[in-house]
Simulated scan of single mutants.
Amino acid sequence: MLTYDKLVRDLIPDIIQASGKTAEIEVVSDEVAFDYLVKKLDEEVAEFKTDQNLEELADVLEVLFALAQKLGYEEQDLLAKRLEKKNARGGFEKNIVLKSTK
């Protein structure tokens, strides 16, 4: 038996069951889920650092959307805030590395 204590996507228990296995799950409150999502963000970012592919980036984005939702925002709110900040301060297209200021 494998033991986990991590938040998983909503269909994972069904996928496990379809494979002939059983899964013990617990449905937690939004407050508890938020803490698990913060841990999940670390996990997904670490996976992206290792694999550096679109699938891992999509996982990071899904966790960010879930965190925004737990804070009372919609996906569009997060995307709009991203665009607002990009318009005000720029993006990262020019590869600028700040070394110092005087």
Rank of each mutant, 00 (worst) to 15 (best):
E55A: 09
L71D: 14
L64G: 08
E31Q: 06
E84L: 03
E62A: 05
V38N: 14
E44L: 02
L61T: 10
K70M: 08
Y73Q: 08
K70S: 08
D42W: 03
L78M: 04
E44P: 15
Q52S: 06
D51F: 14
L83N: 13
E44K: 01
T22G: 10
Y36H: 13
A23R: 05
Q52V: 04
L41N: 04
T22M: 13
S29W: 08
E26Y: 07
G72N: 10
Q76A: 14
K49N: 14
A80C: 08
K40W: 05
K81V: 00
V32Q: 13
G20N: 05
E44M: 01
E43N: 04
R82F: 05
V28R: 10
E47C: 01
Y73N: 05
K21F: 13
A66F: 08
L41Q: 07
K70D: 09
V63N: 09
D59Y: 10
G72I: 00
D51H: 15
E55K: 11
A80H: 12
E55Q: 11
D35E: 11
K49E: 15
E43L: 01
N53H: 07
D59C: 12
L79W: 05
D35V: 11
E26S: 04
E47H: 02
A23L: 11
E62F: 03
N53S: 01
V60A: 02
